[in-house]
C-alpha cells in the first residue's frame, strides 16, 4: 500500500495526464459519424504504435557486446512497432483517399 502511494506521488503528473486523457479521448471521439468508424479506428490504432518510442529507448540501451535474446526481442519489438505505425497510417490514408476521390467527383 505504501509503495503504491509512494508511486502515485512520484508519478503524479503522469497519473493526471491519464485521468485527463480519458476525458479528452471520449470528448474527441463522441459524435463521430458511422462512415468514419473504420478509418478512425485504424488511425487511432496507428497512434497506439507510439510504443515504438519505448522500443527505440530499449534497443538504445541494449548491450551489444554479445548477441542476446534481449537484443533479438528488442529488435523484433521495433519491427512490430514500426509495422503498426507505418502500416496503420498508410492504410488509413488509403481508406480516406477513397472517400475523398468520390467527393470531388460529385462537386
Amino acid at each position: 500500500m505504501e509503495n503504491i502511494l509512494q508511486y502515485f506521488f512520484e508519478y503524479k503528473e503522469a497519473i493526471f495526464i491519464i485521468a485527463l486523457s480519458v476525458f479528452l479521448g471520449i470528448e474527441v471521439i463522441s459524435n463521430v459519424p458511422a462512415v468514419l468508424h473504420t478509418p478512425l479506428m485504424s488511425g487511432a490504432n496507428a497512434i497506439s504504435g507510439v510504443i515504438i518510442i519505448g522500443g527505440i529507448i530499449l534497443v538504445g540501451h541494449a548491450d551489444l557486446s554479445q548477441l542476446s535474446v534481449q537484443l533479438v526481442l528488442g529488435v523484433l519489438a521495433l519491427i512490430f512497432g514500426t509495422l503498426n505505425v507505418v502500416g496503420g497510417f498508410a492504410v488509413t490514408d488509403r481508406m480516406l483517399e477513397m472517400f475523398k476521390k468520390k467527393k470531388s467527383r460529385q462537386s
Partner: peptide, 9 residues
C-alpha cells in the same frame, strides 16, 4: 497520452 487517448477512443 497517445496510448490513453487511443484506449479511451
Amino acid at each position: 497520452l497517445g496510448g490513453i487517448l487511443v484506449g479511451a477512443a
